[in-house]
Amino acid sequence: MSGPLEGIRVVEMGVWVAGPSCAAILADWGAEVVKIEPPEGDPFRGLGAAFGAAMNPPFELDNRGKRSVALNLESSEGRRIADELVSRADVFVTNMRPRALERLGMDYARLSALNPGLVYCHVTGYGPDSPEANRAAYDVGAFWSRAGVVAGLTPAGAEPPLQRGGMGDHMTGANAAGAVAAALFARTRTGKGQRVSVSLTRIGVYMMGWDTNTQLRTNLPPTPPHDRRHAPNPLINPYRDANGRWFYLLLLQGDRHWPDLLRALGNPPELAEDPRFADIPGRRDNAPALVEALDHILATKPLEEWGPIFDANDVWWAPILSVAEVVQDPVVRAAGAFVQVESPMGPVEQVNTPADFSDTPTRPGSWAPELGQHTEEVLLELGYDWEAIGALKEAGAIL
């Protein structure tokens, strides 16, 4: 068996990241995924120009394991082919806006009537039934900006930081894949499909749930993030070693871990005997002085020496890694974060999708397809002959 979703047929009509990433996870889980693209292709393909070479690593990650069918859904012939694909599918995944789906005849009401067992997964910015269901968003808008994420990461008086590409999209796509699996399970009991809705804003609000739930319960907004010298708990804070390398202390339970840290540092009197640092309130109120003292001590040894000392004294810590370091880190690799994928150039290492299954192990599918690479192949499977395929090309219904 090649994954828990082996035998499940998925039709994706997605663009950019949130919808396609959901379908890519389903493909890694064993589903057969057909990606419907317009003749001009998913605009995500255009990102490849940024790399100045015949590659598009972000697109390759979010579209591997799929077959691409290029259809002109503005034509009746193209819509008929899409209907045939959906009528045979278990799942439909899209992140297009509701008005575009209605115009193209790919909305939930119509497709569920065509295929009552269909699980229709609609990934949106603000929710398919919200007043702004048709507002353009991207994850920068609906997740990063509107859900409170960027405000929660911006210190008072500082400028908002830029988001890295696809962060909210990938969280949303992973949640959507889980929701699809749950809906498929429900279908085994009811025989009926349903609409699954996952929005970037909902995911952002849930990710910021501690802050947002505190706002709901107390009506008091969380304080803006502190700089490291004013950390409420200086024992869960970043520090630098003798080589200037950053790492995090992870001593969340301050009073529990304070004796461990003192022991690891050799019980320096400037810490152990200073009453300002004796308990959690004191360390909070005197954070600048404590951070300065810890900075001085921790800068005396490299992390290669501190690490074993911390471990021997039950001081919890983690290195702060760059992406270049992440891809070489043995712990990250042992966690299964990377996977070999067969490409036209031979085996290529890529990021793995985020779940493993002990009894139905997953494996990555084929390389991300070229635009319309599988149009003829899929049409032959639907029962079209070469003469009919040629006529569809001449009519502009397929690429």
Rank of each mutant, 00 (worst) to 15 (best):
S322M: 11
I297F: 00
P224T: 12
W210P: 02
N286K: 05
T212Y: 01
D285A: 15
V315T: 04
E270Q: 12
R189F: 07
P281I: 07
L252S: 08
S322H: 09
P221M: 14
L298T: 03
L261V: 08
G191E: 04
V323I: 13
L271P: 07
V291R: 03
D295I: 06
D329V: 14
P232T: 12
Q215M: 15
P275R: 04
N237C: 15
L250C: 15
R263E: 14
F277C: 03
P308Q: 07
G191A: 07
R189Y: 05
W210Q: 09
G209T: 09
R189L: 15
W316C: 12
A289V: 02
D314N: 11
P232F: 04
R229H: 12
H257E: 03
L321Q: 12
D211I: 03
A318W: 00
R217Q: 14
P330L: 12
W317L: 03
R240Y: 01
L261W: 04
V327N: 03
S199W: 01
A293V: 06
V326F: 02
G209S: 15
L321P: 03
P268Y: 01
R228D: 13
P222Y: 11
D255F: 03
H296R: 12
N219S: 13
L216V: 13
P232K: 13
P259T: 06
K301Q: 13
P288A: 14
L261S: 07
R240V: 03
V323G: 02
A287I: 02
D255K: 07
N237P: 05
E304F: 00
P225W: 09
W306S: 09
L303W: 07
Q215S: 14
G209I: 11
L200R: 01
V326T: 13
P269E: 10
P269Y: 00
Q215K: 08
D314F: 01
R263D: 07
G244K: 10
H257M: 05
G254M: 10
K192F: 01
I309P: 06
P268D: 00
V326Q: 14
G254I: 08
G193Q: 08
S197G: 13
T190Y: 00
G254K: 06
S197M: 06
P268F: 00
Q215F: 09
H226N: 04
D241Q: 07
R195F: 00
G282T: 08
P281W: 04
R245D: 05
L321F: 02
A264G: 02
K301A: 10
L252A: 14
L303C: 12
